[in-house]
Nucleic acid binder design. Structure first.
Length: 499
RNA sequence: GCCGCCUUAGCUCAGUUGGUUAGAGCGCUAGAUUGUGGAUCUAGAGGUCCCCGGUUCAACUCUGGGAGGCGGUACCA
């Protein structure tokens, strides 16, 4: 290839917001999803896989008043000019599936799903444009019992992942917030934009604190970079009402009974029918969780939980990690929520016109894994395959036979497939993290033996040896056995290293 | 989207107040060691100094624009 062609060659690069996952992380991922799956199965959810691509209208993501899809979703047109999109969550495809198979499904329908979802947004630290979710949903159950179960499922799942005492499932209800809006005099029809702004502001409470949120509720806020965010233009009385409202203590420390402490002046707001409905839901969920043996630390009422803005209609949940980890720069890393969900009673109705109650919980697998990997800082690297060295190209059949014998005994093994000499083969095995290499040159062959070199022991021995010649003469951590004992000896060696 | 910072070897980064052959560490390849990975030493390969235009005798350096990356913020089912 001449130099002139250089600029026509593509650059080998990852698409922005996407990433490669290599063996050690893949293993951790598989372990983790296995544990989640086990809990979901135990709760009685049924596995369901749906495609990564759906028709855009089925996902409900066309821009308002336009025949173009929402910018946040990856979309393209097929040859019929129909818009298709990569799924951005697992709930919208579920709604489509339920609507399509409504007649034949058992109701309530309870399924779990696991897979990659895609969002066409600016990636950030720990935020990618492809990431994994693990969802469980109950469709067709109106009872708040179904919501309570979601909280239990979430708690049990995080317990199963070894996070006992390190997480909390926070619960709130949209109906509570609806009560707040009624109290503020913001009505659904004429004030929906301000209501949205209020929700957005409250959603930032954990990051900005009350000072920042108050600014956003009022006139707006200018951040450090000089970017201006418009506020909800509430007046001072309204803002302090919001703060007082959200600071209500709904539960006492022991939660033997529900103790509602109302700050002064909230009477009118908390008397509303919709607020009482929400309060009833929260108390019901708490009672059920307590009865099922979940503690106050595991499932807690928190009126500041907002969740998504679009489709939730009742209780909402958020799983949050409560421990702090310092990043490479020594600054604490925020994980935020690693999962969430809630009741969405209108999603299937988009297709059928029939209102179908549903509630679900979703784990952000990728984010949770990032958090877990910071706790278990030392990730033990998995052993690679045993490598059978090719000492003599004329004897490849013999080497292949040895390799196959190891494989048949359930041992990961491979014959060196490159074309380099012994030294390079050793380096290769080292890089593969092989437990040992198998050597049979003419010396061993003459005696019908093989040499097994233990790379892990060898590495330890090498640490003590300064002089290379001496070390090589000693040939540490290797031994010869008769050909017939090869499999057994390798088996023993691997067993030793796996503890 | 908005604001700020950044872009020099595979990686992490020096450097040139604008001057001729652009450096280091790590990594890689090879040799010292003709059948032995990880220590040590030596050598070698590897660069359109992000791209396009402008100023200049001269641009990797100054300037204008663009792209990409990072961070904050906004949006986020």
């Amino acid at each position: 290839m001449s130099k002139a062609n250089t600029n026509t060659r593509p650059e080998a690069r990852l698409a922005k917001g996407f990433r490669d996952i290599e063996a050690p992380e893949l293993k951790a991922l598989n372990d983790m999803t296995g544990k989640i799956r086990e809990v979901y199965e135990r709760y009685g959810f049924e596995a369901l896989d749906t495609p990564a691509i759906e028709y855009t209208d089925a996902l409900g993501k066309f821009l308002p008043d336009q025949d173009r899809p929402n910018e946040g979703v990856f979309s393209f047109q097929d040859e019929d000019e129909q818009w298709m999109s990569l799924r951005y969550d697992l709930t919208a495809p579920l709604a489509r599936y339920v609507a399509q198979n409504f007649q034949t499904l058992p109701k309530p329908f309870r399924r779990y799903a696991f897979g990659n979802v895609y969002r066409n947004e600016k990636p950030g630290p720990g935020r990618f444009r492809q990431f994994m979710q693990f969802d469980a949903d109950t469709v067709g159950a109106e009872s708040v019992a179904a919501d309570a179960e979601m909280c239990m499922l979430a708690a049990d799942t995080l317990e199963a992942l070894g996070l006992r005492g390190k997480f909390v499932i926070k619960v709130n209800s949209r109906n509570i917030l609806e009560g707040l809006f009624e109290g503020l005099g913001l009505h659904l029809e004429e004030d929906w934009l301000r209501r949205l702004t209020v929700l957005r502001a409250l959603d930032k409470l954990d990051r900005l604190g009350w000072d920042g949120v108050k600014a956003l509720l009022g006139e707006g806020r200018t951040d450090e970079s000089g970017d201006r965010t418009a506020g909800a233009r509430l007046n001072v009385e309204q803002i302090s009402l919001v703060q007082a409202f959200l600071s209500q203590k709904i539960e006492d420390e022991n939660f033997d009974g529900i103790a509602v402490q109302r700050p002064y002046g909230l009477g009118a707001m908390t008397d509303s029918e919709i607020y009482q409905k929400g309060l009833g839901e929260l108390i019901d969920i708490k009672r059920r969780c307590r009865a099922a043996g979940f503690s106050n630390d595991q499932v807690r009422i928190d009126l500041t939980v907002i969740r998504g803005l679009e489709y939730y209609t009742g209780p909402v949940f958020e799983a949050e990690l409560t421990f702090e980890v310092k990043g490479d720069d020594g600054k604490p890393v925020r994980f935020g929520s690693v999962g969430g969900g809630g009741r969405y009673d209108d999603l299937v109705a988009r297709f059928t016109g029939e209102k179908v109650p549903a509630t679900g919980f979703s784990i952000g697998v990728s984010r949770l894994q990032a958090a877990l990997s910071l706790i278990n800082e030392k990730k033990t690297e998995a052993l690679g395959p045993v490598v059978v060295l090719v000492m003599d190209k004329g004897e490849i059949a013999t080497y292949q036979k040895m390799t196959q014998a190891l494989r048949n005994a359930g041992i990961r093994a491979e014959m060196y497939l490159g074309s380099s000499g012994m030294k390079a083969q050793m380096k290769y095995a080292d890089k593969r993290n092989s437990p040992c290499v198998i050597i049979q040159g003419s010396d061993e062959r003459a005696k019908s033996e093989v040499t097994i070199k233990d790379l892990i022991e060898g590495a330890k021995a090498a640490a003590a040896i300064k002089d290379n010649k001496e070390w090589k003469a000693a040939r540490p951590a290797q031994f010869s056995v008769s050909e017939s004992h090869l499999v057994q000896e390798v088996h023993n060696l691997i067993k030793r290293h796996q503890g």
